[in-house]
Nucleic acid binder design. Structure first.
Lengths: 347, 347
DNA sequence: TTGTAAGCGTTATCAG
DNA sequence: CTGATAACGCTTACAA
């Protein structure tokens, strides 16, 4: 027992202390601690024992400084307040943690400007790799170049942009849009409205394309006035769309919305106005949010595997970081699935 | 233009390079970069200019090593896949970022064991401070001592535990439970069932206490058989509760569930069985999740200010970190609010 | 299989 | 106001 009379912060144990205690060199301790192949078993055991007995904690700063790596992965997302995003992050954290990486997270708040700042922050934190889903109005990828120039790998997911040398993780949004629209058409819909997001984001433009393809398949001419684009797909967006529908002379008989939040908000508003769903208007959403199973009638939607997307993105990145010989995959496409519920089925 | 023929990684610019270019000492550069008071304005400007011209990026590892600080805050939460948690994290990230801290996040997956590992990871990452919401079955706080011993401050939020020297951020769960139950009673309910979580977690035991207090106020004896506890309050938990209710001889006429997920799942199941809500059974949930506004009838619930809780927790921690003279606050209580909707109102 | 020693880039202390 | 210098704790050639 010693009395810490001067209140000096208790001295940290370093590999030097262990070395001294064991009468060996710090280098050997360093090696023993991370079982270097060229070290005798007995020595290693002694080192490990002493380390835990003495309460040794490795100093990551020193290690990072020396190795020029942080074992940290950055994530930049538009917003962290949707069910989808939280499941994505959950998946990323799981894989990253298992592989010995920390996750640092930053929100761009859907703003290009804030995204640029976030990238700068990540850069300054010396992340080993980055995973990004683009903000609403991100216009170019200039801000990522600084990382790429330093050979810091970037994975885009969900809202991606094509960039040579970067892998993207997506679902086949075009096919999903096609599936959703095709389903509505096959239920007898003739005038299908589409609620889209910002069309410079792949996820929304691809879904729109799928929508058009399905129409073409049924020989229905594309009517631009049936597409509401550049909405934020928020609750308000759904309500606004409903208002617009209610003022239309020739109302649509189907709606394909690019997310569940807006689909549900729109449905509720339409229901209030006395419109019967799916009888008058059939509705399909996107994401398979929990709310889709709660709204009455239950919402037909496209299952978007968020947790899996997060896991795959992180696993891909970790792979790139841990082995430089990793293949230069361009795009990974995850499976989506149209989940048919009552909001779109007409008997 | 130089051609990087040997593919050597481009040399990093350090304060030495700037010093050399300006014919001053590295120490001065270091000071200039973080505007030390004792430095001439002109010199500072020269340094800043040179730094940005040469593309200088400060090496955080070296700085951290020297200063023994990481400017990183850790967060440990049970799960990152609920609306509530994602809003909490969103708030934390916002404040932390504004104050120059990074956030690293780890999920305990509701497991005490994993929580212990998470704390260890955080410790090894040399976080400056920690914010924690406890796992389902965390039994003691032994695992946090290692941090506290190093004077690393810990803030508990939501699922807290009383610990001298740590601040807790909560809402008044007892009062909220009272409000919810009182409301049901005032609507004429006589037999109110309570869906609780693990009663060793403050949030659930406090709400149960509030429930009991309200009963007492109305002179209704507490009936333990009306409390389902130690459920995970998942969808399945709600469904199970409904099944149990359906088999009861004397059915309850009200339900107070400790979260919206289970409340909604329970409602749906009861509706399927032909029970009218609120007429036969009135329901109140907790959290004000988006689903509460979607279920039919809309769910009466307690608004839990997640974003605000995150912001307050982070602000409190940052304050502790940035000024050592910060007051030793024990508990911060945020305002909750009973939001009355149709699921509990009988005309 | 182990030891030696040279950094990694910054900041704090002390001296000028 | 500025400079010299010594850490901070670890890793890794290179040597033994």
């Amino acid at each position: 027992m010693y009395t810490d009379q001067k209140m000096t912060p208790p001295k940290e144990i370093t590999i030097y202390d262990i070395a001294k205690a064991l009468n060996i060199s710090p280098a050997t301790v360093s090696r023993g601690l991370k079982d270097h192949p060229a070290i005798r078993k007995g020595t290693k055991k002694k080192i490990l024992d002493a380390a835990s007995k003495m309460g040794y904690q490795q100093n990551t700063f020193a290690s990072n400084l020396r190795r020029k790596r942080s074992n940290t992965i950055g994530v930049i997302i538009p917003r962290l307040n949707s069910y989808f995003m939280s499941t994505v992050i959950s998946g990323m954290e799981k894989v990253a943690n298992q592989s010995g990486y920390n996750l640092i997270i930053s929100q761009s708040q859907e703003s290009f400007k804030k995204e640029i700042i976030s990238v700068k922050t990540m850069y300054d934190s010396r992340i080993d790799g980055l995973m990004v889903s683009l903000a609403y109005d991100t216009a170019d990828t200039e801000h990522f170049e600084v990382l790429l120039k330093k050979r810091i790998p970037i994975i885009f997911f969900d809202r991606v942009i094509d960039h040579p040398g970067c892998t993207s993780i997506v679902i086949d949004n075009r096919q999903a849009g096609y599936d959703a629209t095709h389903h509505l058409l096959s239920q007898g819909c003739k005038r299908i409205m589409h609620l889209a997001g910002n069309l410079s984001r792949n996820v929304y433009s691809d879904r729109l394309e799928g929508y058009k393809m399905a129409l073409a398949k049924f020989n229905i001419p594309f009517d631009p006035s049936l597409v509401i684009s550049n909405s934020l797909l928020s609750e308000q967006g759904g309500v606004d769309a409903a208002q617009e529908i209610l003022t239309m002379h020739e109302k649509p008989d189907g709606i394909f919305a690019s997310n569940d939040t807006s689909a549900v908000a729109c449905m509720r508003q339409l229901k209030l106005a006395g419109i019967k769903i799916p009888h008058d208007i059939a509705v399909v959403g996107f994401n398979n949010d929990p709310i889709s199973k709660v709204i009455d009638p239950n919402l037909t939607t496209v299952n978007y595997p968020g947790q899996e997307m997060g896991e795959v993105a992180a696993a891909t990145l970790v792979n790139k970081l841990d082995q430089s010989n990793s293949p230069g995959v361009n795009t990974i496409v995850l499976r989506h699935e149209l989940i048919i519920r009552e909001s779109s089925t007409r008997k």
